[in-house]
Design a protein around this nucleic acid. Structure first.
Lengths: 329, 329
DNA sequence: CTGTTAGCGCTTTCAT
DNA sequence: ATGAAAGCGCTAACAG
C-alpha cells in the first residue's frame, strides 16, 4: 500500500495526500477530512525511505560506543537516545569494542545510511579520530565527541574535567588526614591518563613530587583492584588511602583490604570514580566522583542538534565533576 | 556525488558501476578495475536509502527495551547488536520505559523506516502485546520476544524458565538446612510473577502450603531490599533465608542483615537473581541465578534472522537458568 | 560484457 | 485549493 492507493481511494491526487500527511496549510478542510479518514482506516504509514530519498534525511543519528554493557556508557547512551527520541530522531547503536576496524566498518555503514549525525561516546575516540581513515569518514557528517576533544570542522566536543575529578578525591583524602596515597590506574585511554595526571598534580600541590611512584597499573575489574592492593600489602608498602580511576576497581580494593583484616575507612580510605551503582552496592558505600554522564549526554545532543539543524551555534564545553561522599573515607 | 558521477568519470554506464559495487560476476576485469579505482579515489559510498527504495530493506532491525541502563537489558541488547552487526544488520535502540504510549510511538516510527525485524526485550512486552494497538503495529514485521510468549503469526519467542530458576534457589537453600524462607518480589511483570510462583511451588514440594504468606513485595533497588528485611526484623519474624527476584534487592537484603549485626550466611542466607556484576560486588558475593541473557540474545537473533530471510524454520524455545554459587549461602 | 530504461514511493515546484 | 510532472539514487530486467 502506497500513496497512490490512498489517493485513488480518496479520489484525489497524490499531492493532496502528501499535503494532508505533512499537515500543510493549503488544503480544503473537507478534502483533508476525507483523506484523513482513508489514512486512518487503512492504518497507513508512509515510507520513511522514500521520504528520505527526497528530503535527504532519515531523522536518524548513530551512537558509537565501546561497550553498552559498561554502566557509564549505558547511562550516557540512554540519555542521548531518550533526548533524541523526544526531538524526533531515532538512534542506531554501535558497539565498537574500541577497535579501529569495527569503528571504520560502522562509520562506513552509517554514512551509507545517511545518518544526520554521530555521537562518539568514550575517550578512546580521541585516539581513533586521529587516524586518517576515521577522519575521512567523519568529514561529511556532524559529529560530537562525548568526553574528548575533536579537531574537525563540523564537530563539537563535550569535555569532562577528569583531572580535576581525581584531584578533588585527593584533596578530600588529604583534608581528612589520609596522606599516604596510591592511585590505581586502569587501561591506557586519554581519560585514564588525565585522571592519573590529576592524581600526580594534586600530590604535587601537597609537596609530593614523585607522585608517579605511587601509581599502580591494573585492570578495570574487581580482580584488578584486589590484585593491586594485595601486592601493596605483600610489598609492605605504607599507605592510608587508595584512589581509583573506576568504581569497580575501588570495589576490588575494598574487598582486598577487608579480607586482609583492615578496616575501611578507619585504617585505609578508598575512593572510586563514576558514581555508579557499584559505589552504592559496595559495603561500606564508596566515596566516588560523579562525572555527570547524563549532563554530558544532554550537552552532546544539544550540540549535535545545533550542528544538524544549523541553528544557534553553541560551542564545545567542559563539565565539572562532583565529589560524592560515601563511607569509605 | 552519486552513481552517475562515478559512471561519467569512469566512462561507463551506471549499470556497470552498480555491478561493480555489488560484486556481480559479469563484468570485464579491466572495466571492473577502472571503476574500482574511481570508486576508491572518490571514497564513494552508495546511498543505502536509494538502495532500500528498490530492495525494500535497509538492513536494519529495532530493539525495543524498557531501559538500557538495567544491566540485564544492556547485556541482552549488547549481544543482539553484535550478532546482528556480524550478519550485516544495524540496530535501532528504543528505550520505551515500559510505557504503552512510547512503545506505540517507537513501533510506528520503525514501521515507517521499514525495519526488517523487531526484538522486544523484557517481559513487560508480554502484557503490552496483548493490546490491540500494539498487535496491529506488529502484524507486518517479523518479531521476536526475548523472555516472553507471543501469540502472533510472524513471531517467535525465547522463554527463560524463571519459575525453575527461583525453585533452584529454594532447593539449594533447603538442602543446606535453611528452611525458613521469605521471598522478596519486585514489580508486577509477567517475569516477576513467574519467579514468585516458582518460590511458592518449591515450598509446596517441601510440604509448605501457605507460601504466599512468605512473599513480600518491595521495589527493585537496594533500598527496597533493605526496607523489606528491616520490616521482617522489626516484626520479629523467624527466618533463615531470603530469596530475591533481583540481585540489587538481594544486595539491599544483605546490607540490612549486616547492619543489624547478623552474619551472612551463618545466621541468614540470601540469594539473588540475574548473575549480574552486582552479585560479585556484594560482600560476601551473592549466590545467584544465571538466566543467560547472552544465550537469550543469540537465540533471538537466530530466530529473527530465520524469520527475515525466510530460511530454515527454527522454533520458539525455552532456556534453563543455572545456579551460581556465591558466599551468601 | 555493457547500456538503456522503467520503476521504487515520496516531495516539491509549477501550472491551473 | 488541487493536480501534473520532474526528480531523489539506485537496482534489475531487457536488449543488444
Amino acid at each position: 500500500m502506497n500513496i497512490y492507493d490512498i489517493a485513488k481511494e480518496a479520489g484525489v491526487s497524490i499531492s493532496t495526500v502528501s499535503r494532508v500527511m505533512n499537515k500543510k496549510e493549503n488544503v480544503n478542510p473537507a478534502t483533508r477530512k476525507k483523506v484523513e479518514e482513508i489514512l486512518e482506516k487503512n492504518n497507513y504509514t508512509p515510507s520513511a525511505i522514500a521520504r528520505g530519498m527526497v528530503s535527504k534525511t532519515m531523522k536518524t543519528v548513530a551512537i558509537l560506543t565501546v561497550d553498552i554493557r559498561v554502566p557509564h556508557y549505558s547511562r550516557t547512551a540512554y540519555t542521548i537516545e531518550r533526548e533524541f527520541s523526544r526531538r524526533g530522531y531515532e538512534v542506531l547503536l554501535c558497539n565498537t569494542g574500541g577497535e579501529l576496524s569495527e569503528t571504520v566498518k560502522y562509520l562506513r555503514t552509517v554514512q551509507e545510511k545517511k545518518v544526520d549525525g554521530i555521537v562518539l561516546v568514550g575517550s578512546v575516540f580521541n585516539t581513533l579520530c586521529k587516524k586518517e581513515e576515521i577522519g575521512k569518514l567523519l568529514k561529511n557528517t556532524p559529529v560530537v565527541l562525548a568526553n574528548g576533544k575533536l579537531e574537525l570542522p563540523n564537530s563539537y566536543s563535550v569535555l569532562v574535567d577528569d583531572r580535576y575529578g581525581v584531584a578533588m578525591a585527593v584533596n578530600h583524602l588529604m583534608q581528612r588526614g589520609y596522606d599516604k596515597l596510591f592511585y590505581l590506574k586502569d587501561m591506557d585511554t586519554v581519560s585514564a591518563r588525565f585522571k592519573c595526571e590529576g592524581f600526580i598534580q594534586a600530590l604535587q600541590s601537597y609537596g609530593i613530587h614523585n607522585g608517579k611512584g605511587y601509581v599502580i597499573e591494573t585492570e578495570r575489574s574487581i580482580e584488578g583492584g584486589m590484585r593491586a592492593v594485595n601486592q601493596l600489602l605483600l610489598d609492605k608498602k605504607e599507605f592510608t588511602g587508595i584512589v581509583c580511576g573506576e568504581d569497580l576497581t575501588a570495589v576490588g580494593a575494598v574487598k582486598a583490604l577487608l579480607h586482609a583484616g583492615l578496616r575501611v575507612p578507619e585504617d585505609v580510605a578508598v575512593t572510586g570514580y563514576n558514581n555508579s551503582d557499584y559505589a552504592a552496592i559496595c559495603e561500606p558505600e564508596l566515596t566516588t566522583v560523579d562525572n555527570k554522564p547524563e549532563m554530558v549526554a544532554m550537552m552532546s545532543v544539544q550540540l549535535l542538534t545545533s550542528l544538524i539543524e544549523k541553528t544557534e551555534a553553541y560551542s564545545s564545553c567542559t563539565i565539572q565533576p562532583e565529589l560524592v561522599k560515601g563511607r569509605t573515607t
